[in-house]
Nucleic acid binder design. Structure first.
Lengths: 107, 107
DNA sequence: AATTAACATCGTAATATTGCAATATATAAA
DNA sequence: TTTATATATTGCAATATTACGATGTTAATT
């Protein structure tokens, strides 16, 4: 086992869970906050800043890219990673829709 | 390895990531939606409804309880699980604060 | 008291994730 | 063209997660 049975859930449920999952690691939270605080393209002070090996940071960046939260641009021999604000807002809205639609009281 | 290095992140970052992580599984999304739709205490049609084994559903419920999203009450020989709306809203607000504070454009 | 029903917990197998060293790749600088 | 720097990818070890059968536990029912 160890395999999530995605086939028994709806596409929306799987998508939602995927967004939550990608955000569900403190390194990825920290990376997003750091990039945001810089208010400018961050290349790789990130590795020093986060405190994980370069390979590990690169892997986390890849996951953030996988749901479109980050876009990267080549900047000389460095990479410039930025938050895709449009996508960011879109995902925030989807999560809020879920939160607002899933709020019943009974006890 | 396989161990998240929580000690190198702030408590807030770890907490945020933990919330996201718990919501990051389609079964848990589905459980929350089902409980919400019933508009009443759900005991266990849940197992039939979700399509996972009873033990597995119970495990997912435990994780949702771990961050306070669900409260359970004994109801005869059944359990009544409900969404804790206050906690639900509190977590929604925390996630929104994160989203709103982490939204910079640069490229 | 015995039986049944509804959960929870334990143990375990399969797979996923995290993290890193080593290595590959690409671009700027010398 | 060589060298240096920045980043991505690969391979692997350790741990976590998912899922489920088997087994406990508790409370209603007989």
């Amino acid at each position: 086992m160890g395999v999530t049975k995605t086939q028994i859930f709806t596409e929306k449920q799987n998508d939602l869970a995927q967004f939550f999952k990608v955000l569900g690691h403190p390194a990825r939270v920290a990376i997003l906050q750091y990039i945001s605080n810089q208010n400018a393209c961050i290349c790789n002070d990130l590795v020093e800043e986060i405190g994980l090996a370069q390979a590990t940071v690169s892997q986390h960046l890849k996951e953030l890219k996988s749901i479109g939260l980050l876009k990267g641009e080549v900047e000389g021999k460095s990479m410039c990673y930025c938050i895709d604000v449009e996508r960011w807002t879109e995902i925030q809205n989807q999560l809020n829709t879920f939160f607002n639609n899933t709020k019943s009281n009974c006890c």
